[in-house]
Design a protein around this nucleic acid. Structure first.
Lengths: 126, 126
DNA sequence: CACCCGTACTAACACAAATAATACAGATGG
DNA sequence: CCATCTGTATTATTTGTGTTAGTACGGGTG
């Protein structure tokens, strides 16, 4: 879980980096469904970041139904993350379309893209 | 040229939307090399945007060697836009890799991606 | 009952984007 | 030659958002 790296100098907000990092951990299986996340205060201390910022990230992840939180208990990875995965599909495909479109405009060979997909697919396979 | 649409309510800065829009016009061939761009003041008036914001976008596009400007004359699409296209390639491929990676995490079928590329490729072909 | 949990709230600060108002020098057409 | 357009530079101000800080409340747990 502590594999998350935050760049405070980045132009992308810290809470978004947190969302992306934790989402990656969950979707990749590094964090199992039902597993407890660090408490807001604990993670804030560990990353040297204000608790409010952590809270903001957790709230967003809960809104996306990737985690669930309860006062007094803590925050946990959702038991079923498939609905959340499905909700992302449209946005991911849109991003992909836009990137492919830009690649086309820059005269990048189509084969280069398919090859890129193959590389990425086997890269995280084992 | 006036096909550019600006969303002042978007979270992405106006000057970036301008850059993206004009870049699209140039790379797609809607604006030919050597063609004159609207003057800073004219475009500012047309889009109801501050001239400084237009200037910022033009400066960025010039830094990317997509256009060239000269005081008293105006701004023009670069005669040779291939160097600029090449400069974008790395970034585009990185974006593509990231999107493919996320698609993989969300269990999107690989065939769906290749099919998406095919669709996008023929979509702007004729 | 003490302690940690999520949550809510206000205030203050930092930073970037955008606006506003000028000003200057180069190019151009009448 | 000169009015007028061009890009460019400068300064000040406003605005929105991210972040920090501090405090507080209610719920769950040992």
């Amino acid at each position: 879980m502590s594999n998350i790296r935050i760049d405070v100098k980045s132009r992308t907000p810290i809470f978004e980096q947190l969302c992306a990092g934790i989402r990656e951990e969950i979707l990749s299986g590094a964090m199992a469904p039902g597993e407890a996340l660090p408490s807001v205060r604990a993670l804030a201390c560990e990353l040297a970041i204000n608790p409010n910022t952590i809270q903001k990230a957790y709230a967003e992840l809960e809104r996306q139904k990737l985690i669930s939180s309860a006062p007094g208990r803590g925050s946990f990875v959702s038991d079923d993350i498939r609905p959340a995965m499905g909700a992302f599909e449209e946005k991911i495909l849109a991003d992909l379309r836009a990137a492919v479109h830009r690649a086309r405009l820059c005269s990048i060979a189509k084969e280069k893209l398919t090859e890129l997909i193959d590389k990425e697919w086997e890269g995280t396979k084992p």
